[in-house]
Design a protein around this nucleic acid. Structure first.
Lengths: 221, 221
DNA sequence: TTCTAAATGTAACAAAGGTGACAACTTTTT
DNA sequence: AAAAAGTTGTCACCTTTGTTACATTTAGAA
């Protein structure tokens, strides 16, 4: 029936039979939306877990004037906004809109808690999902806390080097520019400056670190 | 005994007796550290929940070269790094060091899960803690995604106005500068530019919005 | 009220990064 | 091997933000 659920991170570690028998023990709804339907509207209270089992949806945030900007695309199977059922703010921050026909499983909060009591693996998966998200965001944010491009690049290089003094970059300058939120030529300039300072040597993707200590200094420049 | 635990968010909604009887049902350790002790070292595996019941500690991140920068101070009672027990990366990202003498309750992962099974409130509190953290981080990050100072300020103003067209700012330009990660005079300039464009009127903390639509336009400038 | 500390307005100059463009080089595909 | 696509080096010029400094205004304390 819901064969795709085995690939859902919430049910990781469970086989099809286990999932089915679990779902038989709780109350949930199947919902189906046509293309371009509003599934969840911004500000709506989030007291249920929505699992996208088929289709593709987008989350977009309505601006003060009605225009909206896309936040992200979500493909089945996935869980929508797991951090909003139990968080302090339990109102959706975005509109969720279908691209094509989409199917959902909807589990209300009380039933979800029942599910957690029934199966420890599901609970751990859910805890893992939210925790990983918090970790991911935390890391992104720390990256932003390095102000200058030079410091971001230094941080990246030390991480990428992971101890080696010579290595090949696994991202293009374009990727890095996007990652750092700057323009591509700026990345090139930053590389060049580190090289001119005698800290590294770069030639295309090949990097040689001459002075790891100075590179670490660059964190705070 | 652990009278302070009633103010711990993990045990919110429970009284002293309930907490005590819960703790009697699981295995945990009491630990005590002297001043300036290393409680947790960066990279160490996180397979236990540490609850700071007395004292004050700091988290600091060791740089590649040994120097370290302080991340945050934590006061009792609080839970250390709740998002790291169940997350994908279960290694502490920081060193935790005591300022003064500090006492902890240490609950291993398996016992913590037992606690969740025993008491639904504790589970919901824990879910709430990590969810709220994810939400908080998410919001911070979204703010950073507005590139220009003008767009950040516009976003802030619309939020602060919350519908009104005239209101008083609740932060100083200094606060805003810190919040936006820019220099203070830049904040002043950004205010002035919005004013010169006829979008708002500012006089010290008093703000009048003339054109909310144009202000919203400024998101993407 | 008067004094004082904090907040704000403003200016000149410096520095960082953005933009657009193009050539040179590498990698991948055919 | 040749062609195509992608990546990198580099340049000139523009825009935004940082820095420092100082005068002015406001708000809070005495």
């Amino acid at each position: 029936m819901h064969h795709k659920l085995t690939t859902l991170s919430l049910f990781a570690g469970l086989d099809e039979k286990q999932i089915e028998s679990l779902l038989n023990l709780i109350v949930f709804q199947n919902k189906r939306y046509g293309p371009n339907s509003l599934v969840v509207s911004q500000g709506e209270q989030c007291n249920r877990l929505m699992i996208l089992t088929d289709g593709m949806v987008k989350g977009e945030m309505a601006g003060a004037d009605g225009r909206s900007l896309k936040i992200e695309d979500l493909h089945a199977p996935t869980v929508l906004a797991p951090a909003f059922i139990f968080g302090r703010k339990n109102h959706y921050p975005v509109n969720i809109i279908t691209y094509n026909e989409a199917k959902f499983i909807v589990i209300y909060k009380t039933e979800l808690l029942k599910l957690f009591q029934l199966n420890n693996t599901v609970l751990q998966n859910f805890l893992g999902m939210i925790s990983s998200r918090a970790q991911f965001l935390s890391e992104k944010l720390r990256f932003h806390s390095f102000k200058s491009l030079r410091s971001k690049l230094a941080f990246y290089l030390i991480d990428e080097a992971s101890g080696r003094s010579s290595f090949r970059l696994s991202h293009s300058q374009n990727d890095l520019a996007e990652l750092f939120g700057v323009a591509r030529p700026s990345v090139g300039r930053a590389f060049m400056q580190l090289q001119n300072d005698g800290i590294i040597d770069v030639r295309y993707k090949q990097v040689q670190i001459y002075d790891a200590s100075k590179l670490a200094d660059a964190y705070s420049e």
